[in-house]
Simulated assay, not measured.
Amino acid sequence: MDHQFVGIPELTGVPRVAVVIDVMRAFTVAAWAFARGVERIVLASTESEALALKESNSGWLALKDGAPAAGFDAVNSPGLLRSRDFGGRTLVQKTTAGTVGALAVADAPLVLCASFVVAGATARFLRGEESGPVTFVVTGEGGRADEDLACAEYIGRRMGGGEVDPAPYLRRARMSRAAADLAGGLRSGYHPDDVGLCSEIDRFPFAMVARREESLMVLRPVGVPAGPAPAP
């Protein structure tokens, strides 16, 4: 299929199907949040909006990039999130790249958010929808983040239905500038396991679909039947 791979600044018009990629770390974190019991994730455009949504909705939680901050309940780190219990809660997420990319394509008829941990399920979901060519939004580094591009290319290949060796794609993620920055402690709100957790393939059996619900852009998990395991 003739998929398109674009950065957020390169988006023109409204794509028919958009898959927004943020491997390190927004949509790895989102997948872990769902695995830890979050019911839905509301994507916020600013930190102020995230806090306002939390304050106006009883029981909601808020998550942001960077170091812990007043009013926020969690930071954008899978290592710091994986032991939390979020059973039945709504989480408001604001990050530097991932949420920005999802909101940029909010008018598309079908929007998915993805990372390596849900890559296989995302590809199977798209095959089931017979979606045709996809616009992959590579959110990091203005569309140049190799970990995001590698994940997008892997999902695109998996959409073809055959076996695809994930190892070269995961290697690119582990060797990316984002991984080096995280491992070097250059990003706050970091756990030493973050790079490894962001480089796991197909950990979760669901895709993450974003849709408008009233005035909000809301991300929810959608279970996808298992397909053939990727090559070791």
Results as ranks from 00 to 15, higher is better:
residue 134 V to S: 05
residue 134 V to R: 01
residue 134 V to D: 10
residue 135 T to D: 07
residue 135 T to I: 07
residue 140 G to M: 10
residue 141 E to C: 02
residue 142 G to P: 06
residue 142 G to K: 08
residue 142 G to N: 13
residue 142 G to I: 08
residue 143 G to S: 09
residue 143 G to D: 04
residue 145 A to D: 01
residue 145 A to F: 02
residue 146 D to M: 08
residue 148 D to R: 08
residue 148 D to K: 04
residue 148 D to A: 08
residue 148 D to Y: 05
residue 149 L to D: 07
residue 152 A to N: 01
residue 153 E to Y: 09
residue 153 E to R: 14
residue 153 E to W: 03
residue 153 E to P: 01
residue 154 Y to C: 07
residue 154 Y to E: 06
residue 155 I to M: 04
residue 156 G to N: 02
residue 156 G to L: 04
residue 156 G to W: 13
residue 157 R to H: 12
residue 157 R to T: 06
residue 158 R to T: 03
residue 158 R to Y: 03
residue 158 R to Q: 14
residue 158 R to S: 06
residue 159 M to S: 00
residue 160 G to I: 02
residue 160 G to Q: 10
residue 161 G to W: 12
residue 161 G to H: 13
residue 162 G to E: 15
residue 164 V to C: 05
residue 165 D to K: 06
residue 165 D to L: 08
residue 166 P to C: 12
residue 166 P to D: 14
residue 167 A to F: 00
residue 167 A to H: 02
residue 168 P to L: 11
residue 168 P to Y: 11
residue 169 Y to D: 01
residue 169 Y to W: 08
residue 170 L to N: 04
residue 170 L to T: 01
residue 170 L to P: 01
residue 171 R to K: 14
residue 171 R to A: 14
residue 173 A to T: 09
residue 173 A to I: 02
residue 174 R to T: 06
residue 175 M to P: 00
residue 176 S to P: 12
residue 177 R to D: 12
residue 177 R to V: 13
residue 178 A to L: 03
residue 178 A to N: 12
residue 178 A to V: 03
residue 178 A to P: 03
residue 180 A to Y: 07
residue 180 A to L: 06
residue 180 A to E: 11
residue 181 D to Q: 11
residue 181 D to I: 01
residue 182 L to S: 04
residue 182 L to Q: 05
residue 182 L to H: 09
residue 185 G to F: 11
residue 185 G to H: 04
residue 186 L to S: 15
residue 186 L to F: 12
residue 187 R to F: 13
residue 189 G to T: 07
residue 189 G to S: 06
residue 189 G to I: 02
residue 190 Y to E: 06
residue 191 H to E: 07
residue 191 H to N: 12
residue 191 H to W: 10
residue 192 P to M: 08
residue 193 D to H: 10
residue 194 D to L: 05
residue 195 V to M: 11
residue 195 V to K: 10
residue 196 G to I: 03
residue 196 G to T: 09
residue 196 G to Y: 05
residue 197 L to N: 03
residue 197 L to C: 09
residue 197 L to A: 08
residue 197 L to W: 09
residue 198 C to P: 06
residue 201 I to F: 14
residue 202 D to N: 13
residue 203 R to Q: 14
residue 204 F to N: 08
residue 205 P to S: 12
residue 206 F to T: 08
residue 207 A to L: 07
residue 208 M to R: 01
residue 208 M to V: 02
residue 210 A to L: 09
residue 211 R to Y: 04
residue 212 R to C: 03
